[in-house]
């Protein structure tokens, strides 16, 4: 079999080459992933804290985690895209990009929440008790004592979530966001050079995951909790 890489220099018929389309699709993949990751970390930290509080706060957190964990991502994406705008007219203003970010971000937030909860629960009980004995109120206990330690303990699993998010962003093809997977499907159909197109797309996914892995490992080493073995 011979490769015909010139296919990437062909014109798509819309005044650009397939290479340009590929690179803009890469940009969309990275943009979706980055926004979803920020949303996932923010929501996940909040829900993770809720899961360690007493009373009905904990139930709310559990409901959130079980709901987002037990429905397939693609089905959640369809809920955001087809169902919720029909029920909540305000959502009709949102673009496909925003809906994918919401779907992917909240889906991942449930997994982040579990890591944050595990981080908080792994701290010795004395940390919480000592903080309370010093007269700190509960929000202060979390802000000044528990979270600074727990979030740093949760960093390594969050790194692997960041790489999962890049892979999971590929479901955006189903709602026509022009990211790498949708590019792969459409360009394969138009050019019939599927192997070259898929190889290029796969390479970009692998490169993205690798670069992000390195970046976050550096961050991890900077923020490592002194003395923690995890």
């Amino acid at each position: 079999m011979t490769f015909e890489w010139q296919v990437l220099l062909q014109d798509t018929g819309a005044g650009e080459r397939y290479l340009d389309w590929l690179l803009s699709a890469w940009g969309w993949t990275l943009a979706v992933s980055a926004c979803a990751w920020v949303l996932a970390c923010a929501c996940g930290a909040l829900i993770g804290v809720l899961r360690t509080l007493p009373g009905w706060w904990r139930s709310l957190g559990t409901l959130w985690v079980e709901g987002f964990r037990n429905i397939p991502l693609l089905v959640q994406l369809f809920l955001w895209y087809h169902v919720l705008p029909a029920l909540m007219p305000a959502l009709r203003e949102l673009s496909g990009f925003m809906l994918v970010v919401l779907a992917l971000g909240l889906f991942t937030s449930a997994r982040v929440a579990e890591q944050v909860r595990a981080g908080i629960e792994s701290l010795p009980r004395g940390q919480r008790l000592a903080a309370q004995a010093l007269g700190l109120r509960l929000p202060q206990v979390y802000r000044h004592v528990l979270l600074p330690q727990a979030l740093r303990l949760a960093l390594p699993p969050l790194t692997s979530e960041a790489m999962s998010i890049i892979k999971n962003s590929s479901v955006a093809f189903a709602v026509s966001v022009s990211e790498l997977t949708l590019f792969a499907m459409q360009a394969q159909e138009e050019t019939s050079r599927g192997v070259e197109i898929y190889l290029a797309v796969t390479a970009l996914y692998v490169i993205s995951a690798f670069v992000i892995n390195r970046l976050l490992l550096t961050l991890e080493q900077r923020l490592r909790l002194p003395g923690a073995t995890a």
């Binding site: 892979k167 479901v171 093809f173 898929y198």
Partner: peptide, 15 residues
Amino acid sequence: RSIPLVMVILWFFLL
């Protein structure tokens, strides 16, 4: 493990 499942599905369907 480093490729999205959707891409693996497309690869096999093509190959």
